[in-house]
Design a protein around this nucleic acid. Structure first.
Lengths: 341, 341
DNA sequence: AGGTTTCTTGTAAGCGCTTACAACCGCGTT
DNA sequence: AACGCGGTTGTAAGCGCTTACAAGAAACCT
């Protein structure tokens, strides 16, 4: 027992069990070629002394930490919570832990957080989206750190990624509304700076409306921060327009909830007077009244696949550069035929 | 440059700057007694080489890691997401990082996760609630690790804690309903095993109803897992009873959302035919229709205070054993007079 | 029985950093 | 001119673990 720190060290365990430190280490690491008898003696000693190995010393000596780092914009949004949850669960199967850092959509913060994770010596890194400071790529490359970005997908991505096309479902959502006869569409978007997903979704909305000959004028594109209250405020702004929209496409479900609830308050009937769509398919979406038409983002599946793929990369396996997942529309009752003027 | 790992080491920086490793370390740690000139030279060398110090080696040598660990049941519930967010923001002010681990309300997992955090060498630990395996306390004590539990509060707590009384607001919620004339109350609770908060809330509901002479029969206490769908299912169960309740007290907002949405679907009008209450005051609560009567849990404030208090403890300062916060009722329109039979 | 081979265990050299201690420098004192 | 002093820098000994290598024991063979 180390007198000053009162900590039990591996050396103490070795002494207690009457073996060498190497043997204790081998038992700890489930190394092959350890006799049953020795293992039992060491394990008993560990139990008796309540020994807990020092992860830092371990990481330093073995050059792996047994953890990967995830950089997520925020944990406020349950869709990321779900992904992280699934990622962590799956990593457990691989005896790997997860260090989470958030950056609130501030790319400078993201870079800073990455530096911290790298200092920690994480064995791999998960990023969201492909908007990052250039230094992010440089650092990752210089350290030869396995990494993956997710939540987005494009042809021939610069980095390995696991995700879905954000623009296509947005386009299809808009097309769905156009088919229903809507001509005055509006968009409530999350801030697009440093957020490629929000940008892609907006772009999808734009493409579809322009192709149909009824493009979105600037006043019918409102950008707001994340939050129900923000969605509600966006509703007010849009409905106060000279020619208010008959359908509102929202960049995520939470904004859509805000829009729908504000509509309800104002006595605007969804979908008879106003159609609303979301993006994410949070568990609430199907329970709204009316149930929200949205895009089912495969958050759980992303978490699972990212775990498997990153571990594989860390183990030096070759993995596909892109794993494209499906993000199907969930057509529900918040969208309906355009009202007759 | 280390040939094998391709990593820049502190030693490389020292060589590049033409100084000793100790000097580089001093610059890195902003130690006193470093001349301006030396500092500039070292910083230039660091910049030039893109040097990133190894956190593990640093932690090992200095015996502090600059991070605390938080054990939370789940990140699925946005109320914990909010608390963690606020905790992390505040820790940044103290130059301290946050390691998060989740255990899905499984106390054995919690203990396991704590071991992992301790192995990582965290400088302090945050726990939720006071239901834990005994080994949690033993381990924390043995390592003399500063720690704090939060989200609960009782007189003379065994451990230092920052939180609120879970039973009192529950009692007041029930009393509110009783005053409105309700006599057949029901409860939708989260599983109480290993969850003292859920237990305290249920107990609060019980106390108030018993004091008023209309105790809760077992069939009017439904226990379900976390989730909107689960709340909706609980609604079905309760409304299928011989004598369905006129008011439903939910253990958290998400369950209440489920109940309200199921009611809406079934054409049961809230609050005219049924009163519903939640607990948490998630941002959605005030936007439900009708807005949900609930308890405002001071999640942000808890995060902030936990950060300050834990850092203070790590620095050896003496802190109050208990910080009791207020969790006021948010009386809104989901509760109303009992219907006349 | 002696020589291999295979498995188990021990010895000791790091992993990349911090920090106690010593050495050194230039200055003001006596 | 000798001395002491405070401030700056270097030297080197760890921090607690892993692991290459070597040595010893046991099992196999001819």
């Amino acid at each position: 027992m180390n007198k000053e720190t009162q900590r039990t060290l591996l050396e103490d365990v070795a002494r207690e069990a009457g073996v060498s430190t190497a043997s204790v280490s081998r038992v700890l690491n489930r190394a092959p070629h350890v006799s049953e008898r020795l293992r039992e003696r060491v394990e008993a000693a560990i139990e008796r002394l309540g020994y807990v190995p020092d992860g830092n010393a371990r990481a330093l000596a073995s050059r792996r930490i047994g953890a990967i780092g995830a950089l997520v914009p925020t944990l406020d949004n349950p869709i990321f919570g779900a992904m992280i949850d699934s990622l962590e669960q799956r990593l457990k199967h691989h005896d790997c832990r997860l260090l989470i850092a958030t950056y609130r959509y501030d790319l400078d913060d993201e870079l800073q957080a990455l530096r911290t994770l790298v200092q920690q010596g994480v064995d791999g890194v998960v990023l969201i989206g492909h908007d990052h400071r250039p230094a992010v790529g440089t650092l990752l490359a210089r350290r030869r750190l396995p990494f993956l970005s997710c939540w987005h997908a494009e042809d021939d991505p610069a980095w390995p990624c696991i995700g879905f096309d954000n623009a296509a479902p947005a386009r299809r959502l808009a097309e769905h509304l156009l088919r229903l006869g809507h001509r005055r569409l509006a968009v409530v978007s999350a801030p697009t700076e440093g957020n490629d997903r929000a940008r892609a979704r907006l772009e999808g909305f734009r493409q579809a409306t322009e192709a149909a000959g009824c493009p979105l004028p600037p006043e019918r594109i409102v950008t707001v921060e994340y939050g129900i209250a923000e969605g509600a405020r966006a509703f007010e702004t849009l409905m106060g327009l000279e020619a208010p929209p008959t359908a509102i496409l929202c960049g995520n479900d939470t904004l859509a909830f805000g829009v729908m609830l504000a509509a309800q308050r104002k006595g605007v009937c969804v979908p008879d007077q106003l159609s609303v769509t979301g993006f994410d398919d949070l568990s609430q979406a199907r329970f709204m009244s009316p149930p929200l038409t949205t895009v089912a983002v495969p958050a759980i599946e992303i978490g699972r696949r990212v775990a498997d793929a990153l571990i594989a990369r860390i183990d030096g396996k070759i993995m596909p550069h892109l794993q494209l997942l499906d993000a199907p529309l969930a057509l529900r009752e918040s969208t309906g035929p355009a009202p007759i003027d």
